[in-house]
Design a protein around this nucleic acid. Structure first.
Lengths: 147, 147
DNA sequence: TAGTAATCAGATAAATTAATCTGATTAAAA
DNA sequence: TTTTAATCAGATTAATTTATCTGATTACTA
């Protein structure tokens, strides 16, 4: 298999994007998120719990409780979620798996991959959840509907 | 964890790159490859066996046997190894894990990721093992030596 | 021809990741 | 105050990936 982010991270990103579409003060239960995104309820719940521990997400227990963003969508970037769940090894390790890949001891594709890695990092760092809101809503609305 | 290629694929790429540095007609045993690249012998052996089945690598049994490239290094591209081991799902699936990500139903980072994906594909497709030979030799020679 | 060292094949073990289950706690609402 | 529906916490299970083991076969070499 070939993967960029682990399932945990993919689900985490999706869930946080979902939370960013809620209106001010609203929250969403693990059950709701699970249904809307068609991902396992207990799993997404666990993931959001771990993000709660890192203050990216907050939660309220009890009836009508749920999860909501830990700070405004305009202040959260995708990279924060990735870092909290998968870490940043993607941006530090050699793409071919060679040990200690560095500019003065580069693997055969070191330079090319370096540029790509930078762009990927930029993609996750440049924009906030707020910026993605419209696109996120459009995407989420298509889930579960056959085209 | 965050990964581009599976360990199997990383080891496969390294092993094939190693084979590309051998001189015409030479071959390397799984044991030699394992020692030089510092990766598990039985594992790399298994991986090369699977590549043998796909004609990318050939092998000879018996004493003084080993593995060697199935065709000239000047005719093998990295993408062939990746495809044989991990498949090309990296280049087809949504980076955020959304179902059915496409130009007319894009995820929030669809366009940006699309460009990156293309460059990554290019990196694996443009050059042959022959082209990487010098860099490969330099890299391999540093393994196991402290700087 | 016997010994040795290699691939090959398939089973198994270990580790990691993904997913589920169970029970406790919390808090709103009837 | 009781019921209900949610998070939370931790254990457990399932699936996948990574790694190892064992025995058979092959072919070179002494």
């Amino acid at each position: 298999m070939t993967v960029i982010f682990s399932k945990k991270c993919e689900y985490g990103l999706q869930a946080v994007l979902y939370l960013s579409t809620l209106e001010e003060g609203a929250m969403a239960s693990a059950d709701e998120i699970s249904r809307k995104l068609e991902i396992p309820k207990e799993f997404v719940s666990k993931i959001l719990q771990s993000l709660t521990a890192k203050k990216l997400v907050k939660s309220r227990k009890g009836n009508s409780g749920g999860f909501f963003l830990g700070k405004p969508a305009s202040k959260i970037k995708l990279i924060e979620i990735v870092e909290a769940i998968d870490g940043l090894s993607l941006f530090n390790n050699c793409v071919l798996g060679f040990p200690e890949c560095s500019p003065d001891n580069p693997c055969p594709v070191h330079n090319k991959w370096g540029k790509l890695r930078e762009s990927a990092y930029k993609m996750l760092t440049d924009e906030t959840l707020e910026h993605f809101k419209k696109k996120t809503i459009a995407k989420i609305n298509t889930i579960g509907k056959k085209k």
